[in-house]
Design a protein around this nucleic acid. Structure first.
Length: 676
DNA sequence: GTAGGGTTAG
């Protein structure tokens, strides 16, 4: 179609060009521009269409075209005086990562003539650059020195690039300029406080925003703030408030924040509810970020098959999708599958970054593939240009350490080109726990404690190493240091997601409304598993106490009391499971499926309650030949014992996991960590 | 007409 055929053609093509470029149809915009030039339309001023064309060239990464338009602007005498052309060029060079060209152009502008918009474009250009803070602040200072007025856009470009210490003063500047109450600026400030971990400030800002100024982005920013600072419960609470009281609808960004918190907490039922909601909105279907969040949700909740299905069905995968899936396999001990997927990623032409390599190395580590891991570590720089960071070193120390190569792990730390950090020495300390090396543990501990003196986990780890070695003097010494430094062991906790609510348990914690029944159930289960288990049996012989009411036991008991037969119970922990609890869970997960199939555990049991045994009703013959159980009335405890000793130990040991009646899964650190 | 805010993986 011809452009500008009528007498008002210049005007028409200006509007069309702007619309077309604004709609992202940049090729078409450039064609229109060329067309308008060639036909030298009457009344067309080039200055009105040049800015759009320049930005379209930048959007298409066409540096030569941008340079041509630059010289055209010079020839037409539009530079440096025309503020629109100047600003568009500065912005284009910024986006094309040609900052030096932008700076040179800016230098030609007489300082009194530089408009706010030009400063804004240059500041956001510097903010895009990898190392930006000093230049960005310097530009803002120059603006103020030269009395160029700044506006909300200036602050929006400046704030995200400013160093943490500059945030409060800039907040003050914004406040005095009456810009802090502009929604976009307050949202931006909120995110800045979030980024530096000042969650309380962020929340205060959020609460102080009047309702009519709180838009969807404000809610999203606050939800993301909690999510990124690990406050997953607060995310779910705020999302609940948003759904019930706010006048804004959640969008994909909201759901990404919520899903990541569900993944963090293992709040599967909320996660699935959201997944269901997403599936009903066709507009979300193509959102890659959202799919990535869903993959991560299922991975963290242990449903690798579901995660993989989403991954396989994605029309467009980013490196994030691949990394989430690879990390998922690694996390659950499927090292081979993780590496297969990594190979496929390479085949798909995606170049791994540092984070992808972390997931590969950790997959090797958790999958017991030390040699493969070392190969990836030594070749990642030459093959993919990824320079090993401290995090990679921590993975490799972990990898060597788990494989029992403690000396090699220590030597690697000694030979690192950068100073080792806490997690690296911590990985060595963890390896010393597995392989019971007290001497090296003491050395690693000294280093790690110097770097992270308040990280209680390391004290506990060393104390456990001493304890395993029977060195009670060591245990006492560590405890003394902790007391002296005022450190307390952080509470370990376990969660179970039940009907959309996260039930949190801590050791010996009676706060749950069902506490009484839960404790009874734990005792019952303990009595049951102590009979046959070697570990428990030995403990009993040695007269050692059982571990007690650890949070995972309470969580399991809660799960058993509140789910129907056939339900899956997933327990999520914040710390690594202890050996005793791990054994306990393995035993329970063998016994309980059988009991559930017999429907004896429906609802809340009472100690000593008698149950009517109706074998014909629900026991599958394939699993248990009920005729052999000549039991009619039986105290529940002895019934459990009876069934357990008679069948589980003989018949079901290898079948139980196929029944999938109840799987007790333990995630966070994968179950195989302490399994032999 | 120009500049600009919230997003996922370890």
């Amino acid at each position: 179609m011809r452009v500008g055929v009528c007498s008002s053609g210049g005007h028409l093509s200006t509007i069309r060009l702007r619309d077309v470029a604004g709609a992202g149809r940049h090729h078409e915009a450039l064609d229109l521009f060329r067309h308008a030039l060639c036909h030298s339309e009457p009344f067309l001023s080039i200055s009105s269409i040049l800015p759009s064309a320049i930005l379209s060239a930048a959007a298409l990464s066409l540096s030569p075209a941008a340079a041509q338009l630059h010289s055209l602007a010079l020839k037409s005498g539009l530079l440096p005086a025309d503020p629109f052309v100047l600003t568009a060029l500065l912005s284009a060079y910024s986006r094309l990562r040609l900052l030096p060209l932008a700076c040179r152009l800016f230098d030609d502008v007489p300082s009194s003539a530089a408009p706010t918009s030009a400063f804004n474009a240059l500041i956001s250009g510097h903010a895009l650059a990898p190392v930006s803070s000093p230049a960005v602040l310097a530009l803002f200072c120059r603006m103020r020195r030269e009395a160029v007025p700044f506006d909300d856009v200036t602050l929006l470009a400046l704030l995200p690039a400013a160093p943490p210490a500059a945030i409060p003063p800039l907040h003050g500047v914004a406040f005095r300029a009456a810009l802090a109450s502009v929604s976009s600026v307050s949202n931006c400030l909120l995110s800045c406080y979030s980024r530096v971990g000042a969650v309380d400030f962020a929340r205060q800002l959020f609460d102080e925003m009047p309702d009519h100024r709180k838009d969807r982005i404000s809610w999203n920013a606050m939800i993301s703030c909690y999510a990124q600072n690990g406050l997953a419960h607060q995310v779910l609470d705020l999302f609940d408030t948003m759904e019930h009281s706010a006048s804004v609808e959640p969008d994909a960004v909201t759901l990404i924040g919520v899903l990541s918190s569900c993944a963090y907490l293992g709040a599967r039922s909320i996660g699935r509810k959201i997944e269901n909601y997403i599936s009903q909105k066709p507009s979300f279907d193509s959102n890659t970020h959202l799919k990535n969040a869903l993959i991560s949700l299922h991975v963290r909740c242990g449903d690798l098959a579901r995660a993989r299905k989403i991954f396989d069905e994605m029309p467009h995968r980013t490196i994030v999708s691949w990394t989430a899936m690879i990390a998922g396999y690694g996390m659950h001990g499927h090292g081979e599958e993780a590496l297969r997927l990594f190979d496929k990623m390479i085949e798909a032409g995606i170049r791994p970054d540092g984070i992808a390599m972390v997931s590969v190395l950790s997959a090797c580590s958790h999958g017991g593939m030390a040699d493969k891991g070392m190969w990836y570590f030594s070749s990642m720089k030459t093959l993919y240009g990824v320079v090993p960071s401290r995090e990679h070193y921590a993975c490799v120390v972990d990898l060597l350490g788990r494989a029992g190569q403690l000396k090699e792990a220590w030597e690697l730390i000694e030979s690192m080109p950068v100073e080792p950090d806490g997690p690296i020495w911590g990985a060595l300390l963890g390896a010393c726990k597995i392989h019971k090396n007290v001497e090296l543990a003491e050395l690693a501990f000294e280093h790690v404690i110097e770097l992270e003196p308040t990280n209680v986990g390391y004290y506990v780890l060393l104390s456990n190493i001493y304890s395993d070695a029977g060195r009670l003097d060591g245990v006492a010494r560590v405890r003394a240091i902790m007391r002296q430094r005022g450190l307390k062991k952080g509470p370990g906790c376990s969660y179970v997601d039940h009907k959309g609510k996260v039930h949190l348990f801590m050791a010996d914690d009676h706060s749950h409304p069902q506490a009484k029944n839960i404790y009874e159930m734990v005792l019952r289960l303990e009595a049951m598993v102590t009979n046959d288990s070697e570990i428990y049996g030995n403990k009993r012989k040695e007269n050692l106490p059982l571990t007690g009411f650890h949070s995972e036991k309470l969580a399991i008991a809660f799960g058993l009391l509140n789910t129907e037969a056939g339900a899956e119970i997933v327990v999520i922990k914040n710390l690594r499971v202890c050996e005793d609890c791990h054994q306990f869970m393995k035993m329970v997960s063998q016994v309980v499926p059988l009991l559930l199939q017999m429907r004896l555990w429906s609802g809340h049991m009472k100690l000593g309650q008698r149950f009517l045994w109706k074998p014909v009703l629900s026991v599958p013959h394939t699993v248990v030949d009920v005729q052999k159980l000549d039991v009619v009335f039986l105290e529940i405890d002895s019934l459990l014992e009876h069934i357990y000793t008679k069948y589980v130990s003989e018949v079901l040991r290898h079948q139980v996991f196929r029944m999938r009646n109840v799987d007790l899964l333990l995630y966070y650190y994968n179950l195989t960590d302490s399994a032999a």
